[in-house]
Design a protein around this nucleic acid. Structure first.
Lengths: 357, 357
DNA sequence: TTGAAAGCGCTAACAT
DNA sequence: ATGTTAGCGCTTTCAA
């Protein structure tokens, strides 16, 4: 019953093989087809495909030939179903187009690759619902692990997944109401250092323009700003503090407002790369020099002489991914929070003295 | 006092449900488990999970409850095996950390999302072997479609996949020895326009620093450079032409060489964003002003006054993804090449006149 | 309205 | 060294 009528003739040449290539559109050959074609059992094909031992060179050759002729490629979906592991990890981030997340994602990918895994990225667009939808879709595909840059602040929806064995690590921002690993940058310390730097250069009236305070890093940076001001015994006029969306219009308006005041700020701290770009543009048209320190380094920022608090996005991704795979390898330490330091890069804009008058 | 498996008692409250939640670590509940728990048939659970009609509200409620209690989530791997489609597309690119590819990938993701699909990204690191390995790994996972930014120049290895039904679109660079859709930027025209712009501003000795000529876009841009020079009747001294890796050391050395010559170039054309960054850095320390036009726009380039030939990475990704999904929807036009135009953005660096002397 | 049975293509566990 | 059988968890088909 299992003898394929065509399997009696053997192809002789490469051209012969090419001519005989048989594909049914949208209907791929399976191991069973290969087995029939090669005149061997299904398991033998499986052995050849997976380089398992116990196949004579001659049999192997025949199987390889059949694979070639039929254009067979193992269906990993079926394999996954049987094996239980997908060799896939998911990464939920805010926006892959943001120059901060590209390198982070790439670093995760490299670690995954070293472990033989592929990476599925998803952008939440800073929307908690979309974050959840994405994370759960990834779980439905049975990713082995999940790395999340959260948009929301309640991640209890992941509890069943984690209990079911999905390794989970948060990065850049901690999870809300869920006790899992988190790899973060020192937003508080970085911002405090940056503002202290401005203070050290003589500034007293310093503005803070940041992202929406709902975002953990944003509120931490604002806290760092206040801490530095307090440490220096400086009052904070609330008109100097402008958290909110990173929309250019909003940020530009905030800058204008702070500079147009009776007692204008003489320095600004930009809470992240999106804000920084707009602030730099706004300051470019301003008559008086205004000092600036930004959170996040950017390409070309060095050439513009922008002093920044640099964080290492790639290290963030790498560290998170390594923790993830350590867990997948069976390590079961208690969830931990890892905080990576930041670096102040003085390039000029942060060392401008307060404008007199 | 644990819950009995006989499911004779119904949970009454949310807390009750939470207490009863039963998870076996690494051993997820299946539809069969849900069916047993709810006291219904397997198919009924399937109907509820997939919102198919033909289930009484009361039955549906019981099934939903069992799903909640057990923490069930449909295994899409199994679903895929049965349905044949994965609702996943793959994107092979060079490097997700490159600011050109982030937005491109994001654009693909958005189109995929609109079609209910997820995206698996993979970076080839400009290595043809790795490109192939990645593309075939994606095919083994039975992605419905594949978008490729090629590193290699022979893509016949994809023939069996395409024949088997994997929709395939190349983007940024065309496929080699394979007749498939390609969505490209007009590298030739863009470079020609940029060089013509420099010529129009009085330059005669113009240097070209580009990527390795093996890369299609790189050779096209070099061709554009030569075309513009020829159109203007200008000779090209081969010492002005420096294709090669985008390593900062190599690029910086090329810049130094061209500026140190007896008859130095008075203007430079940078073949892509990687090259441009290094050229700008190198020129920053140079005594004489040197004009510069770069291919690819970059964030902050406007503030540095860098004249560029801008291409729209997001449009490239969007267009490619739309074609892909059109094919997945059954459209079977002949493979086509779509070329998107570029834009010259004059910002100062390209309008510097030739240095006298 | 509901459910039982038959696979999807593969691998694990046993035969031979 | 090689083959057979029984699932993995789901959807499809068809019967009740």
């Amino acid at each position: 019953m299992q003898t394929d009528p065509a399997s009696t003739e053997e192809p002789r040449t490469v051209a012969d093989i090419a001519r005989r290539t048989e594909h049914r559109y949208g209907n791929r050959p399976t191991m069973k087809d290969v087995a029939a074609r090669a005149g061997v059992g299904l398991k033998t094909v499986s052995r050849v495909v997976n380089s398992e031992p116990g196949v004579t060179p001659d049999t192997e050759r025949r199987v390889q030939e059949a694979i070639e002729i039929l254009g067979f490629r193992r269906n990993d979906s079926a394999r996954v179903l049987r094996k239980g592991r997908t060799a896939t990890v998911g990464l939920v981030l805010e926006d892959l187009a943001d120059p901060f997340y590209g390198p982070l994602s790439r670093a995760v990918e490299e670690v995954a690759r070293a472990h033989g895994a592929l990476l599925i990225n998803g952008s939440s667009a800073e929307d908690p619902d979309r974050e959840q939808e994405l994370a759960l879709a990834l779980c439905a595909r049975r990713v082995d692990g999940l790395i999340v840059i959260p948009a929301g602040d309640d991640h209890r929806y992941l509890e069943p997944e984690i209990r079911a064995g999905v390794a989970t690590v948060f990065v850049d921002r901690p999870a809300g109401r869920l006790d899992v690993d988190a790899v973060l940058s020192d937003s508080f310390g970085g911002a405090r250092d940056g503002v202290a730097h401005l203070i050290a250069h003589g500034h007293r009236r310093i503005g803070f323009i940041g992202d929406r305070p709902r975002i953990h890093t944003a509120s931490e940076r604002l806290r760092g700003y206040r801490s530095a001001m307090e440490d220096a015994g400086l009052p904070v006029d609330e008109s100097w503090v402008s958290p909110g969306s990173t929309e250019p219009e909003r940020v530009a308006a905030a800058v204008r407002g702070m500079l147009a005041a009776a007692e204008p700020v003489t320095a600004l701290f930009a809470g992240n790369n999106r804000v920084m770009v707009t602030v730099v543009r706004a300051l470019a048209g301003h008559p008086r020099p205004v000092a600036l320190v930004g959170f996040d380094d950017m390409e070309l920022a060095d050439l513009l002489g922008i002093t920044v608090i640099a964080q290492d996005a790639a290290a963030l991704g790498r560290t998170a991914a390594e923790r993830l795979f350590r867990r997948l390898d069976g390590v079961e330490d208690a969830p931990e929070r890892v905080v990576l330091g930041t670096t102040l890069l003085a390039r000029g804009s942060g060392e401008i003295p307060p404008a007199t008058g």
